[in-house]
Design a protein around this nucleic acid. Structure first.
Lengths: 199, 199
DNA sequence: TTGGTGTAGTTAACACCGTTAACCAAATTT
DNA sequence: AAATTTGGTTAACGGTGTTAACTACACCAA
C-alpha cells in the first residue's frame, strides 16, 4: 500500500486507539510498537519518552476540544446564549469524545506534573473565550461575578467534575445520566446569573 | 521493639505514605515490601493483588472523609447552614488531606473500574446526608431542586472538580487559590438556593 | 513423642515494562 | 567516491506484578 502514514502519525493514532480501548495503565511502548510493526525503540526516534508521547496526545485533544467549543460558541452573539453554549459544548465534547477527553484529564497525575504548564494554558483558548464572555455578561449586568478569571476557572472545574463522574462510571445507578447532566449544567449556569424576582 | 503492628497494617501505612510521597505510578509492591522489610510476595498473603490493596486504602479514606463531614455537619440544625457545612467540609478535607483525598480519586481509572461499585456508594454516608439535607431544604422551600438525589451528585461532582483542580496544581498562576475556592463554593451554593428578589 | 495440619513467610521464576547503547544499511550530500 | 545523515535494528539493564513451589514453625490429636 502506498498511502502509509509517516511513522510518527501512526504512533499517535495507535496510541490513541490503545489508550481508549485498554486504558492508560495498559498502554505500553512495546504494544504500540508491535501494532505499528516496528521495534519498540523506534518510537524514541520521534518522541523523547513515554511522557512526551502522552503530552503530544494531550495537546492534540485540547486543540480539538477548543475547536469544538469555538465552533459552537463563537457564532453566537447573545452573551448569555454564548455562555450557555460554551458550557454545554464542553460537556458535550467530553461525553461524545471520551477517548480524547480522557487523554486530557485521565492521563495522570505523574505525567501531568511534568507537562509544561504554559503549553496547557496557552492551548486553552476556549478558557479565554469563557472569560471574555463572562466579562461581557458582567458589563451588561446579566451576570454577577467578582473576578471573571476566577469564575471561569470555577466553571471549568465544576464541569470537569461532572464529566469525569459520568465517564468514570461513578454515577449512582439510581441516577439517570442525561438527567444528571442537564440538572448539573442548569445549576452551574444559574449560579452565575443575576438573580431575578421569583413569583 | 514490642509495639510492632501486624504486617497487614504496616503494609497499609507504608502504602499510604509511599502513595503520597511518590505518587500513584511510583507505587510498587516491591517497594512496599522492602520498606516493610519483608519479601514482595508476603503482601499477597494479606491482599489478593495490588488493586485490592488500593481498594482497601480507598475504603479507609472514604471512611475518614465521611467521618469528618459528619462531625462538622451533623450537629448543625439549621438546614441551610448544614448544607453549607457539608460543602465546605468536603472541600476542607480534600485540601487538608491531599494524601487521603488523592487515594480516593487519583488512583485511577483502571483500578477504579474494578472497584466494587456498591462498596463505594455504601461507604459514602455523607452523600446520603447531603440528599437528606437537600430534601429538608426543599420541603422548607429554601431550595429549589427537582430531584435531590441528582442534585447531591451534581454537587459532589462540582466540588470534586474544584478540589482536583487545586490539588493537581492545574490552577492558573494568576489565580489565588483561596479566592478560587471561596468563589466556587459560593456559586455552587447559590446555584441551589431559592432565588430572592434583587435590589 | 510422633505425626499431621495450618500459618506466615521464603526463593525462584515468568512475562512483561521503559529506556539506553551500540550498531547497521540505505539514502543523501559533498 | 567518500562522508554524513536518516530511519531503523538488536541486546541489554533494571525494574514491574504475580505465581508456584518451598520452608520453618506453631499447634493439636493419637
Amino acid at each position: 500500500m502506498s498511502e502509509e502514514l509517516p511513522l510518527r502519525d501512526q504512533i499517535l493514532d495507535i496510541s490513541r486507539q490503545l489508550l481508549y480501548e485498554d486504558g492508560y495503565r495498559a498502554l505500553s511502548m512495546r504494544k504500540i510498537a508491535k501494532k505499528a510493526d516496528v521495534s519498540a525503540t523506534s518510537i524514541y526516534l520521534y518522541f523523547e519518552n513515554k511522557d512526551h508521547l502522552l503530552h503530544t496526545l494531550i495537546e492534540e485533544s485540547v486543540e480539538d476540544l477548543s475547536l469544538f467549543i469555538e465552533s459552537k460558541a463563537l457564532p453566537i452573539s447573545d452573551t448569555i446564549e454564548r455562555f450557555k453554549a460554551i458550557i454545554e459544548s464542553y460537556v458535550e465534547f467530553g461525553l461524545n469524545n471520551p477517548e480524547k477527553y480522557e487523554i486530557i484529564y485521565q492521563v495522570r497525575p505523574d505525567a501531568m506534573a511534568r507537562y509544561p504548564k504554559e503549553k496547557f494554558r496557552k492551548a486553552r483558548r476556549c478558557y479565554e473565550l469563557l472569560v471574555k464572555t463572562i466579562e461581557e455578561g458582567v458589563s451588561k449586568e446579566l451576570m454577577e461575578v467578582e473576578k471573571p478569571v476566577v469564575a471561569a476557572y470555577s466553571i471549568w472545574a465544576q464541569l470537569h467534575g461532572m464529566v469525569s463522574v459520568v465517564l468514570n462510571k461513578r454515577l449512582d445507578s439510581r441516577i439517570n445520566k442525561q438527567e444528571f447532566i442537564n440538572e448539573s449544567i442548569e445549576h452551574v449556569i444559574q449560579g452565575f446569573l443575576v438573580r431575578t424576582t421569583v413569583s
